[in-house]
Simulated scan of single mutants.
Amino acid sequence: MAVSRLEINFIRLLSRCESIASEKRGEAEWRLEKYVGALEEMLVALKKSSSKPAPEVLIDYNRKVDFLKGLLEAEKLSSPTEKALANQFLAPGRTPTIASERMPASKTVHMQTKARCTGEMRNELMGTALSSTDNKETDLRHRSALLCSRGVPLDERQSAAELDAVLQHHHNLQEKLAEDMLSLARNLKNNTLAAQNIIKQDNQTLAQSMRHADLNFEKLKTESERLEQHTKKSVNWVLWLMLILVCFTFISMILFIRLFPKLR
């Protein structure tokens, strides 16, 4: 099936959008939004076109456009954790946009974005840990000054301050580890549920396609048998009709010769 001009332009623009999304965006962010908007309009026109592609190709096109839209919406979130979670639910395309790609560009963009969001989330956690350490040092200085003002010896003040600092540090570490474990458990649960839903939908689609294929095969087999029987019947009727016609002609000629012998 020939590819229409509209589909060629759509593929070119889609490849350009995937290329921009794979790069570090900044000033080009607004341009990507414009391109994705144009992609949506071209996809709607492509679905209404008389020379539209196969349904599975349209589904993949729609999947890639939705992935780019979700990518832009995730980039607008303020928290790196929210960005990472939103990127987990994005579904990239399954087939390459252009023939020269070994791996779909949307999958590559998805992996790059997840890695970048994970790095931002790690940096945010590290920054939080550093700020908490600074706060502990400030608190430690305040305690030392308070003990000094009360006339406590220097060695005892240092020991008490170090013990308090160690206990507080371990307490903070335990709280942070508990929060991280809860967050990871929630993310794992959400990802597992999302994967189960996707697999379930794919299995349902595959089962439905197999049922349709079996029904079409049975219908084709029945129609082939009927056509074969009809062909045999038509050939038999034509043969008998020709035989009857020949016999009738032969008998008619004999009767004509017997009844009108003088005409010979």
Score class of each variant (00 low, 15 high):
85 L>H: 08
143 R>N: 03
153 P>E: 02
176 K>V: 07
237 W>S: 07
93 G>C: 08
54 A>S: 14
190 N>R: 06
238 V>D: 07
174 Q>S: 15
236 N>G: 09
180 D>E: 05
164 D>V: 04
225 E>H: 07
85 L>K: 07
261 P>H: 00
175 E>S: 13
256 F>D: 10
215 L>G: 09
66 D>S: 13
228 E>Y: 06
231 T>H: 07
55 P>Q: 06
253 M>K: 00
253 M>P: 00
15 S>H: 10
75 E>P: 12
157 R>S: 10
212 H>I: 13
139 D>T: 06
184 L>H: 03
81 T>K: 05
50 S>V: 06
254 I>N: 03
202 D>E: 15
52 K>V: 01
4 S>M: 01
99 A>K: 08
260 F>S: 05
97 T>G: 15
218 E>M: 08
122 R>F: 05
199 I>F: 11
122 R>S: 09
150 R>T: 01
57 V>P: 06
232 K>W: 01
200 K>T: 13
14 L>M: 13
81 T>C: 13
74 A>L: 04
63 R>G: 09
232 K>G: 08
25 R>L: 15
37 G>Y: 02
12 R>L: 06
198 I>C: 09
33 E>S: 15
48 K>H: 10
150 R>S: 02
174 Q>H: 11
2 A>G: 14
140 L>D: 03
139 D>G: 14
43 L>N: 07
50 S>W: 01
5 R>E: 14
216 N>I: 11
173 L>Q: 13
151 G>Q: 04
255 L>E: 11
233 K>T: 05
248 F>N: 08
207 A>D: 15
10 F>L: 07
150 R>H: 01
138 T>P: 04
77 L>N: 03
103 M>A: 10
87 N>S: 14
79 S>L: 08
182 L>C: 09
57 V>Y: 01
137 E>A: 11
10 F>M: 03
258 R>K: 07
145 A>W: 00
22 S>T: 08
116 R>Y: 05
248 F>I: 06
75 E>D: 15
70 G>D: 03
30 W>R: 14
105 A>D: 05
138 T>N: 12
183 S>G: 15
247 C>L: 12
100 S>V: 11
137 E>Q: 09
150 R>F: 02
122 R>A: 12
167 L>Y: 00
51 S>K: 00
119 G>D: 15
12 R>G: 13
